[in-house]
């Protein structure tokens, strides 16, 4: 998989390394900005209210 990506990147080894680094940073950014905030509420740490956050239930 990674070998395949490497072979399809343009330029010499330095350019390829730079593009790889940018790709990794972009993926980490997307994960932190969009994927993890979506996944995190599926974990139990958000349930701190006694009415499951509906706010109106009494």
């Amino acid at each position: 998989m990674y070998g395949w990506i490497w072979r399809h990147l343009p330029g010499n080894a330095w350019v390829r390394a730079l593009i790889s680094l940018l790709l990794v940073l972009a993926i980490v950014y997307v994960l932190f900005q969009y994927v993890f905030p979506w996944a995190e509420p599926l974990l139990p740490f958000n349930d701190v209210t006694v009415d499951n956050g509906s706010g109106a239930a009494r």
């Binding site: 740490f45 958000n46 701190v48 209210t49 006694v50 009415d51 706010g55 109106a56 009494r58």
Partner: peptide
């Protein structure tokens, strides 16, 4: 909790908070 009393008001002023994360 928006359905509970105001701060200092008569009744029950209820507040929730994270124990872990955030």
């Amino acid at each position: 909790y928006s359905a509970t009393a105001r701060l200092g008001g008569s009744g029950n002023f209820a507040v929730a908070g994270h124990r872990r994360t955030y």
